[in-house]
Computed example of a mutant assay.
Amino acid sequence: MSSGVTIGQAAAFVRVTVKTVRHYHKLGLVAEPERDGSGYRRYTPDDLLRLVQVRALAGAGVPLAEIAPLLDAEDEDFAETIGAVEQRLAAQIDELLARRETLRRLVDGNRALLPERAAALLERMPEHGFSVEDVELSRQGLILAKAMVPERFDDHLAAIEDALLDPDFVALSRLGAESATWARDDPRIPEFAQAMADHYLAHPQHLRIVTGMQARTDTTARYRVVRDFGSEEGTASERLLALVEAHLREAGVRIPR
């Protein structure tokens, strides 16, 4: 009677697939038994032990390329390698936990790509009379601003928070949101642009909403990406913004072109 077990039995005992056992053979992790008189490869207890060891190390995160020398290593080298694997696994666990937290934050769109401070600001906007559409546009604009000029984003938020405490600024901002529905040649636009520029010039802390988004590198390009969001060419919003910037430049405020 032939001793040992077949490859199918060996795979079942070790709780891997036959394909995995053959892959271990191909990599040289486990020696491939010779065929017996019946033409079957028979796996001895030593072969099964080696398979169990390989499977355990692979399951623990040890790269397959490191397993063969590890099994033949001295105790000290084995412990050192296992320690390195443990560190890698700990880093992977931290990354997975961070990903899980991001997924949870995605349930709340405001908190997925923005800090708590920005999310809180957006949540307060309806209290100032801004519509759901206004809040969503602001959310998207803040996400873009944070990505384009991250080093200035906190200052940008601080300026907006301060400005929202001013009823005059809130009224102008609401009118600005409404102006998006106007025709580009609406006669109210020049007067409104002048009023907005005058407010900024009279309140330098609010002016930082505009000037604070000037990055240290690629200043003009980054500024224009944020500036052009929500104000497509040929619209009332684009004309209004251009006029406000023109008034500010005339007053000596540095605005990228």
Rank of each mutant, 00 (worst) to 15 (best):
R111D: 04
V170I: 10
D198Q: 11
A145C: 14
T81M: 08
V16P: 05
D185R: 15
A177W: 11
E151P: 06
A10C: 05
L248N: 02
D198R: 15
S2T: 14
R35T: 03
T219V: 14
E66I: 09
V5Q: 00
P150E: 07
E116D: 15
G212T: 03
R111Y: 01
R124A: 01
V170Y: 05
E178H: 08
P167T: 06
P115Q: 05
A202Y: 06
M213I: 14
I209T: 04
V149G: 02
G109A: 14
R124Y: 00
Y24W: 12
D185H: 12
G141Q: 02
D228C: 06
Q87P: 00
E101C: 00
L27Q: 13
R224E: 03
W182A: 02
S173A: 14
M125L: 15
L207D: 08
V107S: 07
Y24S: 06
A158K: 10
H156Q: 06
V149C: 02
A163K: 01
L89Y: 06
D72R: 15
P45S: 09
Y223G: 02
A58W: 04
A246H: 10
A91P: 01
A193R: 00
P256G: 04
L165C: 13
P126A: 01
I189H: 03
V52Q: 12
D75S: 13
G230R: 04
P63W: 07
A73Q: 09
R222S: 06
R208A: 04
A147D: 02
T181P: 00
T44I: 10
A236M: 07
D94E: 11
H156Y: 15
H25A: 03
R257F: 06
A221H: 12
E151N: 13
Y200C: 11
Y43E: 06
A11Y: 03
Q9R: 13
D46V: 14
E76C: 00
G109D: 13
R104N: 10
D228W: 05
I93W: 03
A195I: 07
L27Y: 06
M196W: 15
E136M: 06
V21E: 10
A68V: 03
T211I: 09
R100A: 07
D186S: 10
L164G: 02
R124W: 00
E161M: 00
V52F: 10
L243G: 02
A68E: 14
V16H: 01
L240K: 08
L51W: 03
A60G: 15
I82K: 02
A56L: 14
R99K: 12
V16L: 04
S179A: 15
R15M: 12
R100G: 03
K19D: 13
V85W: 05
E76L: 11
R249P: 09
L172Q: 02
R152G: 01
E66M: 10
D72E: 13
Q214L: 08
I209D: 04
S231L: 12
R41I: 08
L57V: 11
L175T: 10
T6D: 09
L51P: 05
R88K: 13
D198F: 09
L165K: 15
L142M: 13
E74N: 13
A215G: 11
T211W: 04
M213C: 06
D47Q: 00
Q9F: 01
Q53S: 15
L106T: 09
A251C: 08
R42E: 09
P45I: 07
S237H: 14
A221Y: 04
I7K: 00
L96D: 12
R216Q: 14
